[in-house]
Write a protein that binds this DNA or RNA. Structure first.
Length: 824
RNA sequence: GCCGGGAUGGCGAAAUUGGCAAACGCAGCGGACUUAAAAUCCGCCGCCCGCGAGGGCUUGGGGGUUCGAAGCCCCCUCCCGGCACCA
């Protein structure tokens, strides 16, 4: 911890960060310095950072996520943009409801108190959030529009209700979207409990309608990592649907990515849930099949899909016919076939698919080779051959390279009506129903007469009842709230019931960026008819954690595409640029958590060192994209630096007479610093940006010691330093700006410009290598000729010994850098 | 298995993208100031050999391309993240 510091010079007051910071935070708020106007003529820049869940405390992770973007946003503002940098709270969600059950405090009260607390903590970070645009998603003025979107989606078939085997978290007592089930053990993303399957009627958003478009990242600058994860998640496969006829009349359609292997089909496997299983099962097989289907149903998905599990299946007693070869092949039921992917049926080609190979071996089925390996001599396969080759035993396709064969086989079948090109995705529709209270009520009414009836738009919002009981029943309180549940049907007026499920909170965050534009507008989600408001869009820069790659960031894109199709916006991507910061870990290198006891409380550091030091420290630890362990000792370096800036800026200008050479060098360093700091700022390289500022500070201290630059150049340099420091350390910069007699506010000043000519060096260090090894270096004028450089290099006494006695073969000159003498 | 990202001093990290490896900071060591300490300021600080001048080695490992490789190519090891009986 820092000790009391004595002033270096008697006249300069000690730097007391909390005093300075409190002073300016109050002043900025009072002046509305960061209030953003839509009609400001400057070019707009919408800088969005992911809003937090109001868990109760603003922890170090929030500081790490918010203060570097604030630094960049402040920089952009100084660059002349009208920057919108809003903040809000993702206020619906389970922790509030669990707290309600535990402590008998209403989720609304719990949430709003947390928000009030966190808002004050956030203000201590010194960010330029425009609080007048704050969005809180649990307020009816916000969630009304979730309901409105739901109705629009419903009208267009983008929201639908379906009974399905869905993922259920037994700890959270609710269903989850597929995206919220993580890892090999298929656990709940929120609480880590392994999920189970339940057959329930649930509401879905048809995100799969946009699967193809979601694969297209053209026109947006998003990290490769996110693009790869989303592409992976969507899981596009190209192939064919092929229809096999059966004994019972109804055909079976399979999806395959290998139509070129069609002549190698020796069996068929249906998922246990496949609708044809019952029809195809012969009477003598019925008992066995029923038992098998029953055991499959009882198994968890984890057990069923474990990759190392041996494939099992049971013969139905029926056969189907390969439309290409006319061959009859047996139909099995196997639990390794997933009902939810493709058509729920797989054609078995054991020679060319490893799973099918194992299945065939186990059940003694024929293994028929139809793609010949390059030098194949008829020996039996030891495993499936999955590489390229020429089609054999394939009727009219014999001799065709299999790559070509794929299209040829599809075309052949398409002509005859039993095959077609097909694309399948792993992406599933977004399950949005949650069996919990603290979320947006789904605006649907079930009427015994009229069926599913959407709540009329005029009746929105469907409000959450305030007097619900929060009991540990494992069921939503809405289900037992008669006043909420019982309604009159809006169509026929008879008794009806409301949907009691609420929406996934990811619905809230899918469009919140639009709400910041008109946070209290009551005629639409946002005022998209106002050109001044619309011109903020789309978001210019978005920042947030990578953990949302296949959850929020996919829903976020989907929503904007759907909104485009609703005519609300005229673009299809919500954010042009995305940057993901890393995760800040505990000092032990583990994820911070209360149970591990490695949580770092930012408040302690802020009261000791100040927000400015803490902001800078977080940016200095390493590249922002990397995150990493929090090492408390490193903060001293940043504290020392800001103290040096404090002293330096307030010291009187050096008294000596200016010397031309020294002044020119000062200007050169000043212009260079502006250049590199600007470049680093543009590229989110906050760590190196601060390193450059430290170097410049040290340089200025030396210059002052030398005392030969004169008052004008000195003050210009100090002014530049303060301006460059302002985005990262806004309070100390403002204080020093005032103390050095400059007009309020430094945050309304223009970012300094650099002049390439003035930044240019007069000399450079010429490196001399012999056979690529460094032997000497000396300063030479930038305009040195190649001949001169080579001559000087060869003449160097340090180089001579390495050249003498050797034959010089070549002398290379790289202008502005080096001479490399190649000897033998 | 597939996809993505990594590996550089005691530590966090830099390196104009093929041209001085280790900027900046932490820790450490030495010095100044002080009765003393803290704070502050100055200096040293990759490894090995050498009293020294100096020399050799060094970016996970091995090969290659090149006048020149931390960076490019091939092979391998390990770490982190995502996906995975997906037909």
């Amino acid at each position: 911890m820092t000790q009391t510091r004595e002033p270096v010079e008697g006249r300069i007051e000690r730097y007391v960060p909390p005093a300075v910071e409190a002073k300016w935070q109050a002043r900025w708020e009072q002046d509305g310095l960061y209030t953003v106007r839509d009609d400001d003529p400057r070019p707009k820049y919408y800088f969005l950072t992911m809003y937090p869940y109001p868990s109760g405390d603003l922890h170090i992770g929030h500081w790490y996520a918010e203060t570097p973007p604030d630094t960049k946003a402040r920089y952009l503002r100084m660059r002349g943009y009208n920057v919108l940098f809003p903040y809000g709270f993702d206020a619906f969600g389970l922790p509030a409801e669990n707290a309600a059950i535990r402590n008998q405090v209403h989720p609304f009260k719990w949430t709003m108190e947390n928000i009030a607390h966190m808002r004050e903590q956030a203000k201590r970070m010194g960010t330029m959030f425009d609080w007048s645009r704050e969005v809180i998603t649990c307020l009816p003025e916000y969630y009304k529009w979730n309901q409105w979107f739901f109705l629009q989606f419903y009208k267009r078939g983008l929201a639908y209700r379906q009974k399905a085997a869905v993922d259920w978290c037994p700890n959270c007592n609710t269903t989850l979207a597929r995206e919220q089930v993580w890892g090999e053990d298929r656990h709940c993303e929120r609480c880590g409990t392994p999920v189970i399957k339940r057959d329930l009627e649930q509401w879905f958003f048809r995100i799969t309608a946009y699967a193809e478009e979601l694969l297209d990242f053209q026109g947006i600058d998003w990290p490769e990592r996110v693009k790869a994860m989303q592409t992976n998640w969507i899981g596009r496969s190209e192939g064919a649907n092929i229809t096999f006829s059966t004994d019972v009349g109804e055909p079976i359609t399979v999806f395959t990515t290998r139509p070129d292997t069609i002549y190698g089909v020796t069996f068929m496997v249906l998922a246990p849930e496949h609708p044809l299983v019952e029809r195809l099962t012969t009477p003598e097989r019925k008992a066995e099949i029923d038992a098998y289907v029953e055991q499959a149903r009882r198994q968890t998905e984890i057990e069923r899909t474990a990759a190392d599990r041996t494939k099992t299946g049971v013969f139905t007693g029926s056969y189907c016919v390969n439309p290409y070869s006319g061959e009859r092949v047996p139909v099995y039921v196997g639990d390794y076939v997933l009902a939810t992917y493709g058509t729920g049926a797989v054609m078995g080609v054991p020679a060319h698919d490893q799973r099918d190979f194992e299945f065939a071996q186990k059940y003694g089925l024929e293994i028929k080779l139809v793609i010949a390996p390059p030098d194949y001599r008829g020996e039996p396969l030891e495993q499936a051959y999955v590489d390229e080759g020429v089609m054999v035993n394939s009727g009219p396709f014999d001799g065709t390279p299999n790559e070509e064969g794929m299209d040829a086989v599809i075309a052949y079948g398409a002509e005859r009506g039993f095959a077609s090109k097909a694309v399948t995705y792993r992406l599933r529709d977004w399950l949005v129903s949650r069996q919990r209270y603290w979320g947006t009520p789904i605006p649907i009414i079930y009427c015994p007469k009229c069926g599913t009836v959407p709540v009329p738009e005029n009746d929105l919002p469907v409000l959450l009842p305030e007097d619900a009981d929060f009991l540990p029943t494992g069921e939503s309180p809405l289900k037992y709230h008669e006043g909420f549940r019982k309604v009159k049907c809006p169509q026929c007026g008879e008794d009806a019931e409301r949907e009691t499920d609420t929406m996934d909170t990811f619905v809230d965050s899918s469009w919140y960026q639009y709400r910041y534009l008109s946070p209290h507008y009551d005629r639409a989600p946002f005022d998209y008819t106002n050109p001044a408001i619309k011109s903020w869009l789309p978001v210019t820069q978005y920042t947030g954690g990578i953990e949302h790659a296949t959850m929020h960031l996919m829903y976020f894109r989907f929503f904007t595409k759907a909104m485009r199709d609703l005519g609300l916006v005229d673009f299809g991507e919500p954010a042009l640029h995305l940057f993901n910061q890393g995760v800040i870990l505990g000092p032990d290198g583990e994820k911070m958590s209360k149970s591990r006891g490695n949580v770092v409380n930012p408040d302690d550091y802020v009261s000791t060192y100040g927000a400015d030091t803490f902001r800078c420290y977080l940016m200095f630890i390493g590249p922002w994209s990397e995150g990493g362990p929090y090492r408390p000792e490193g903060i001293e370096g940043l504290s020392r630096w800001l103290n040096r800036v404090w002293t330096l800026a307030q010291q009187p200008a050096p008294s000596g007479a200016p010397e031309e050479e020294a002044v020119r060098d000062l200007e050169r360093q000043r212009h260079r610093t502006i250049r590199v700091v600007t470049e680093d700022m543009e590229a989110f390289r906050f760590n190196t940006m601060l390193a450059r500022l430290m170097e410049f500070t040290t340089y200025l201290a030396r210059v002052r010691e030398a005392g030969n630059v004169g008052r004008m150049a000195w003050e210009r340099a100090v002014e530049t330093l303060l301006l460059l420091v302002a985005p990262a350390a806004p309070h100390i910069a403002e204080e020093l700006w005032e103390r050095t007699g400059r007009p309020y506010s430094i945050h309304q000043q223009a970012w300094p410009q650099w002049d390439e000519a003035l930044a240019a060096a007069e000399t450079f260090t010429l490196v001399v290598q012999v056979n690529g090894k460094l032997r000497d270096r000396f300063d030479v004028p930038v305009d040195i000729s190649e001949e001169q450089a080579k001559e000087m290099a060869l003449a160097s006494p340090k180089v001579q010994p390495h050249v003498q006695g050797h034959q010089v073969q070549r002398v290379l000159y790289v202008p502005g850098r080096l001479v490399n003498i190649v000897v033998r």
